[in-house]
């Protein structure tokens, strides 16, 4: 889909379409580029500051591109009591980035999510769309090595 047609699907000057439009752009670009935000402001007919305010409010929106592998660490309660904080810390130290950041080579991004609802296999992480459950400090190290080797 080219850029123009994203906007065509949304009637102009309807503020309620702001979030869906941003979601669509993020799907297309992987994040929200600044020039696109300006186009959105123009299309919806609201100040750019408001677009930016909305984009920075919701967890879903990224203002920077993500890595090839997006690792989402579930931080639900069940995962927490089963040690997901350790899993997160190990991931962070293995990849040298904090949650919410992307490695310099754009290979990995780490995000945390409130709960992905796979409590039965806690602690669980999702890499792109694949679930990895029942993790231990050892198995997570192996898993990341596997992805690093895969490149």
């Amino acid at each position: 889909m080219n850029n123009q047609s994203i906007f065509e699907a949304y009637p102009r000057n309807d503020a309620s379409l702001l979030i869906p439009l941003l979601q669509n752009i993020q799907t297309e670009f992987g994040y929200l580029p600044e020039d696109q935000l300006e186009k959105v402001a123009e299309h919806i007919g609201i100040p750019l500051s408001r677009v930016y305010g909305v984009a920075t409010f919701y967890n879903q929106f990224r203002l920077k591109p993500l890595g090839k592998y997006v690792i989402r660490v579930c931080r639900g309660t069940a995962c927490h009591v089963k040690g997901s904080l350790d899993i997160l810390r190990i991931l962070e130290s293995e990849l040298g980035i904090k949650a919410g950041e992307t490695t310099k080579d754009f290979m990995f991004s780490i995000e945390t999510v409130a709960c992905i609802g796979a409590c039965s296999i806690a602690p669980v992480i999702v890499i792109n769309d694949e679930y990895f459950g029942g993790l231990t400090p050892k198995s997570i190290q192996k898993l990341i090595k596997k992805f690093k080797d895969k490149g």
Binding site: P47, S49, R50, F57
Partner: peptide, 25 residues
């Protein structure tokens, strides 16, 4: 800025404890 002057140069950005008032970007 928004409602009286219709300018909208600044808005609330970020969320929670990190909220701040600033221009876009």
């Amino acid at each position: 800025c928004h409602e009286m002057q219709n300018v909208g140069a600044i808005d609330l950005i970020n969320r929670g404890f990190n909220s701040t008032v600033a221009p876009a970007m």
